[in-house]
Each structure stands twice: as C-alpha cells, then as structure tokens.
Computed example of a mutant assay.
Amino acid sequence: MKWVYMLLALAGGMMAGTQAPINGSLGKKIGSLEGAFTSFFVGLLFLTFLTLFFGKGQLVNVFYVPKWNLLGGLLGAVFVTIMIVTVPKTGAATAIFAAIAGQMIASLLIDHFGWFGVPKIPINMNRMLGVVLMILALFFIHRGSKWT
C-alpha cells in the first residue's frame, strides 16, 4: 500500500515541476512578487472551495496548534517566490532539481533528528551517497543547459 503514497508523491513532484515554469512565466509578465501573490490567491480560492464542501469543520482548531505549525504556509510562499525568480534565469530543470536536492538535505536532517514529530531515521552511508549523487546530478544537469 505504500506504493500508492509514493505514486501520489511522484504526482505531486510532477505538479511542482510543472508549476515552477508556469509561475516563472507569470512572474516575468507581472512581476515576481505579484506572480507569487497571484499563484497563492488562485490556490486560496481552490482550497476555500474544497474546505467548504469537503472539509471536516475543524478549521477553528488552527488557533490551538503550536505556532510553528503555521510556518508551512510561509515556507511555501518563499519557495514559490524563489522558483518564480530562479526558473527564468536557470531553466526549470536546474531550478527544480536544485530545490529537490535542498529538500533532500533538509529531509535527511529532519529524519535523523526526528524534528517536527517525524520518526527518527538515522543518516547512513546509503542516504549520504544518495545526496552526493544528487549534487553530482545537479552539476551535470546545470552544465548541460544552454543557460550556463
């Protein structure tokens, strides 16, 4: 059953890879911050619809969660803004792969220390080798682009 979640994550990654050049194009046309604002506003409208019709009615509990739980939205806004700025300069593949490598480094640290309530999964040689290979792949992906 875990493969279903891996497929969902794969689909989410494909959406993020598609979102970045779309937002990059929007940012070039209306401005980087304006593009990020517009992207999140459209997302807000979509999520408002979903919450109204499919939500569990527990939105009021947001006032009782630890305040650090609210940082996800801030981090998402910063990420989208960074992608809007970088994709037109580096190309989608380089920007997205660099972001994924950054996500892996952060995720390995989060797993290793068990931050944010995730199960502790120690960094080992296999995981380190995976990150080293990703950094090497990033070098080759960037080197192979016409933007260098």
Score class of each variant (00 low, 15 high):
S32C: 13
F40D: 09
Y64E: 14
L108E: 08
G55Y: 02
I96K: 08
F41I: 14
L47R: 15
F40P: 03
F37R: 09
L133T: 06
K29F: 03
L59M: 14
A99I: 02
K28Q: 12
G43R: 04
A98Y: 03
G12V: 02
P119L: 11
L33W: 09
L59V: 11
K120G: 02
L138M: 02
A77Q: 06
H142W: 04
I110L: 05
H112P: 00
Y64N: 15
L33F: 05
Q58K: 15
A93S: 10
F40A: 13
T81Q: 13
F49H: 07
V78L: 15
L44K: 14
D111A: 04
F41M: 14
G31V: 01
A16I: 07
G91I: 07
G35R: 10
G114K: 01
V85S: 13
G130M: 01
F37Q: 11
S39R: 03
F40Q: 13
G13F: 01
E34I: 00
Q103W: 01
V87S: 10
A92N: 13
F40V: 06
F40G: 07
A16Y: 06
I121E: 13
G43S: 09
G72N: 09
A93D: 04
F97N: 00
H112F: 04
F46L: 14
F49G: 14
G76P: 04
F53T: 14
F46V: 12
A137F: 01
V65T: 12
A98R: 03
A20F: 00
A9Q: 07
V118F: 11
I135N: 07
M104P: 05
T38I: 08
H142S: 13
F54E: 11
F37A: 14
F53D: 07
F113K: 08
N124P: 00
L50R: 10
F139M: 10
I30E: 07
I84Y: 04
A98K: 11
A92R: 15
W68T: 05
F49N: 13
L44Y: 12
A101L: 06
A36S: 15
L26E: 07
T38K: 07
S39C: 06
L33Q: 05
M134A: 06
F37K: 13
I100W: 12
L44R: 12
L75I: 08
